[in-house]
Structure formats: structure tokens, C-alpha cells
Amino acid sequence: MEILMVTPYCFPEGSGLEAYVHDVADYLVGRGHGIIQVCASKGGTKMNSLGRMAVISFRPHLMVSNTPIRVGLVKEMLAICKKQSPDVIFAHTPVPFFADCAATVSRKTKIPLVLCYHAGTLYKRNVILDTLSFLYAHSLEKKTLHTAKKIIVYNHFLKENTLRAHKEKIVVVGPVVDSSFFSPQEELPGRSVLFAGQLSKAASWKGLSHLLAAIREIPRAHLRIAGDGDLMSHYQEEASRLGIAHRVQFLGSLSREEMPSFYRSGTLLVYTPTTQNDASPFVILESLACGTPVLTIDKGGISSLIRPGIDSVLIDHHGELQAAIRDTLQDRDLMARLRKGALETGYSLGEETGSREVEEVLLNVAHG
């Protein structure tokens, strides 16, 4: 099977979406399928080829929040399809534009489209961006969802809520985590609270400000932050203003190779977004795969990824955050149980089941 895979960016650029695509692509190539990935790259237009996989990245002409836009992309993708004759188009959304161009190409070429939907919502509590998201959801995205033969999601929250109008074409697959890479270790973890995520305006909903405020009220807690972005200096100034700069370590952007050690270095990963954006945050899955418990919030599909009280702590709102962190860190018996549960979860996670389910969907659509 030949696959045209369309993503906003290509790993290691981007976020959890691109990491997911990277792991799925590795599996599919290992199964003998060919992949041409089309994406945006701030590094410029270029093509890289490795065995059965080629990556064609285009420099965006315009950025709207985190959305790359390139004039003439449909024409460029049509030329790729004419030359390579893919059996199926596999596009990833809801980052607008690239997936919508893929849907246009699907309609023009009759090559079937499979869509993978990664977010609980596009709304970020920003009047301008939310207005644009509303207009997009009721125009281009609506047409793209209609074009797709199948829509892949990671949990039932998306099926029953965000995408309920398209339930008949939705396939829920298991999580994809490279458990040979993100793997637990039996030794005792470090004593830090962890946060991983983009430190940008586009990702300000990930809840870091709430976490910094909570850390201020827990004198013995130290926080390690993995991530970079245009708000990094803002968060550093916020830590100084709160009087906790000496207890907060900003590590910057870490490579994929550095992330397992980062997850293993902490007692607890805290991830409490303020919106429903993240349908399946990969930082939670990766942390658990490394055996580190998680403290998170009941937003979007997050609760379906964890076992509260066994490998994680689940809060209902940010008003509970400070007490939840403090009480969890101070309760040695609870931490021991969570650590044991996280290790069990880590050993049970693996990319093969979820990737195999994705492969089955693509094969059925390509040859159906």
C-alpha cells in the first residue's frame, strides 16, 4: 500500500501530533508500506528520503497562530499524486489548511481520504482565534470531515462529543506509544514535579501558569519544565515574581532522545490544561510508559487514558491543584501505589496495537 501522509509539520517539529505520526509511520514502513509525507517546515522547502519513506516539507507563506499556510499547496500535492499514485491519503487534523488541502486533492483525484483527528476542540479562549475557529469549523473543516471515508480518533470522547455528527465513520483506536523507547526503570525516581509542553501563546492553555502558582504554595516542591516557545521569558519572569525562580528549572526544548530520562527524573508529571483541546495528550502516555505517575484534570478525553488512584491523580478543576500536588507528594503510601501502577501501565503500553488498528483502517479504505 502506498500512502500519502499529510501533517501540519514533520517530527521533531510540531507537537504530540507529529510524534504520533512518527511512531505510526515507523510501524507502517516496517510492515512494507510506502509513505510520502507532505508537511510544513519552518526550515524551508526540501525533500528527504529514507528507504520506503520520503518527506516533502514546504516552507509556509503565512502563519496564523500555529497553522501553516502555503499558497499553491493543492497544485503541489496533485503533482505528487500524479507521480506517485498513492492508494490512500492519510491526513492529520484539526490544525487547519494542510488537511483541508488533502481533502480537496481527494475530491479531485478520487483517492480515498482517511482523517486522524487529534484535538478535543479548536477553541482556546481567545476571541480572535476562537472566531476564526468557529468560521473554519462551519466551512472548510465541515467539508473535510464529509470528504473523509473514515475518521480515526483515540478515545470515545471525540466520537460522542466533538465529532458526534460523524459517528458512523469514526474508528476508535488504541494509543500509540513507542514502549521500547519510552520505557520504565525500576530505580527510585527523582524528587521533582515535571511539566512538558510548548511554552507559546498558541499553547498557553496547557496550564503552566496554574502550576507555577501552585508550586509557590508548596515550599519543598521543585519544578522541572521541558519546552520552549515565545512565552518562555514570560514564564521565567512569572516564576521570579512568585519568588520561586530558585525552585523552577527551565530546561528548554529537549530532543526525543532526552525525553525518557526527563520523565524518569521526576516524582510526578503535572498536566492540567484549561480547555478541551487535548483529546489524547501524549505527554501523559509517555510519562506513564516511563513509569512516572501523572496528576491531571478531567478535560476532553484525558480521563480515558489513565486509571485514577492507580497510576494517576485526577482533579475536577484548577482550584484543587495546589492541594492535590501537596497531598500526593506528602503521602508516601499513595506515591508508592501510584508508582507501582504507573510501572504496570508502562509495561502494558505499546505502539503495535494502535498502529495495527490504523493499518487495518487504511487497508480497508484503500482496497474497499
Score class of each variant (00 low, 15 high):
I3P: 05
L4H: 05
M5E: 14
T7F: 06
G14I: 10
Y20Q: 06
A25R: 07
G30I: 05
H33F: 12
V38A: 02
G43I: 01
G43D: 05
K46Q: 10
K46Y: 09
R52H: 12
S65T: 14
S65I: 14
P68R: 12
G72I: 14
L73R: 00
L73Y: 01
E76G: 02
L78P: 06
I80R: 04
K83G: 02
P86Y: 01
D87K: 15
D87G: 15
A91S: 11
F98G: 03
A99H: 00
A99V: 05
V105Y: 08
K110C: 10
I111H: 14
L113G: 04
A119D: 12
T121H: 02
K124P: 02
R125I: 09
R125N: 15
T131Q: 06
L132W: 11
A137Q: 11
T144I: 09
K149W: 08
K149A: 13
F157H: 07
L158A: 02
E160W: 03
N161G: 03
T162M: 10
T162F: 06
H166Q: 14
E168G: 07
I170P: 15
D178L: 01
F181D: 02
F181V: 11
F181L: 13
F181G: 06
S183I: 10
S183C: 14
P184D: 00
L188T: 15
S192G: 08
A196K: 01
A203L: 08
H210T: 09
L211M: 03
R216W: 04
E217N: 15
I218F: 09
I218V: 03
I218C: 10
A221N: 06
H222W: 02
Q236N: 02
R241P: 07
L254P: 06
E257I: 07
E258Y: 04
S261M: 03
F262A: 03
R264S: 03
G266H: 05
G266V: 01
T267Q: 08
Q276K: 12
N277M: 13
V283H: 04
I284L: 13
C290H: 11
G309H: 04
L314Q: 02
D316S: 11
H317C: 07
H318V: 14
H318L: 11
H318N: 12
E320R: 10
D327S: 15
D331L: 09
D331Q: 09
G341E: 08
G341I: 00
G346W: 07
Y347Q: 11
E351D: 08
E351T: 01
T353H: 02
V358G: 02
V358S: 09
V361R: 05
L362H: 14
L362P: 13
N364Y: 04
A366Q: 10
